Amino acid sequence: MTTTYAALLRGINVGGSRKVPMADLRTLLTGLGLDGVRTHLQSGQAVFTAARGDEDSLGADITLAIEERFGFPVDVIVRDHAYLKSVADACPFPADTLEGRQLHVTYFSAPVDAARFAEIDPAAYLPEEFRLGDRALYLYVPDGLGRSKLAEALARPRLTKGLIATSRNWNTVVKLVEMTGA
């Protein structure tokens, strides 16, 4: 049986550095024996099917292949359709009433607990808010991510130490659910 996955690449094609052309990424993933490879945007999303492996082993294989091909390391999180759909369905904010730029999900490589973020005083950042989910953090930023003080605070290295963390806006979250469900 095959499973459909999304690979989320962290920090590529931003500001002219760490370039990974999507056509090259599709070729690389196909060369790993993955099927039906498709990419979304230039910011590092690929969807594929695989009959072997699990999320962690597939992520490790892709990470290694990217470093060998492009000469720099790229953190990769792989998640299947069921997980991506469950994250979208569990959104604690009214996603259907918000613009995609106002809502983001940070996917983590492992579970996180509230204690990790205890130093952040939620009241100090209102109306911005965050909530934790299953290996995910939901972030509501009414004025967008670029001007968010809360997003800046949440991105502090000590808060994500030992984890891979990569964020996507709500439009991409929804698109990945669609792409992996097809």
Rank of each mutant, 00 (worst) to 15 (best):
T2D: 03
T2K: 09
T2R: 12
T3W: 13
T3M: 14
T4I: 04
Y5K: 00
A6P: 01
A6Q: 03
L8G: 05
R10F: 03
G11T: 05
I12N: 01
V14C: 06
S17L: 07
K19L: 12
K19Y: 00
M22D: 05
M22Y: 04
A23P: 00
A23W: 03
D24Q: 15
L25N: 09
R26Y: 00
L28A: 01
L29F: 09
G31Q: 08
G31E: 01
L32W: 13
L32D: 11
L32I: 12
G33M: 06
G33F: 05
L34Y: 10
G36T: 13
V37E: 14
R38T: 15
R38M: 13
T39A: 10
L41I: 15
L41Q: 05
Q42T: 01
S43N: 12
G44H: 00
G44D: 07
V47H: 03
A51L: 05
G53K: 11
G53Q: 13
S57E: 12
S57V: 10
L58A: 08
G59M: 07
I62M: 00
L64M: 09
L64H: 11
L64V: 14
A65P: 08
E67I: 03
E68Q: 15
R69K: 14
F70K: 00
G71L: 04
F72N: 09
P73K: 11
P73A: 14
V74S: 05
D75W: 00
D75C: 08
I77T: 02
V78R: 09
V78H: 06
V78W: 08
V78Q: 04
H81P: 06
A82I: 11
L84P: 10
K85R: 15
A88G: 04
A90H: 05
C91M: 06
P92Y: 08
P94H: 11
P94M: 10
D96P: 00
T97P: 01
G100M: 08
R101Y: 14
R101F: 14
L103M: 13
L103G: 03
H104L: 11
T106E: 04
T106N: 02
Y107G: 02
Y107S: 01
S109C: 07
S109W: 13
S109F: 09
P111K: 07
P111I: 03
D113E: 12
A114C: 07
A115L: 09
R116V: 02
A118K: 10
E119S: 15
E119T: 15
D121E: 14
D121F: 05
P122D: 15
A124Y: 12
Y125K: 03
L126A: 15
L126N: 00
E128K: 06
R131W: 04
L132W: 01
L132K: 09
G133V: 08
G133I: 06
G133Y: 12
D134H: 08
Y138V: 03
L139G: 03
Y140H: 14
V141Y: 02
D143I: 00
G144N: 01
L145Y: 14
L150R: 07
A151E: 02
A153E: 15
A153V: 08
A153T: 10
A153D: 08
A155H: 12
A155I: 02
L159D: 05
L163D: 00
I164N: 11
I164T: 15
I164S: 11
T166D: 06
T166C: 02
T166K: 02
S167M: 14
N169C: 09
N169A: 09
N169Y: 10
W170I: 09
T172P: 04
V173W: 10
K175M: 12
L176V: 12
T180S: 13
T180M: 12
G181K: 06
A182F: 01
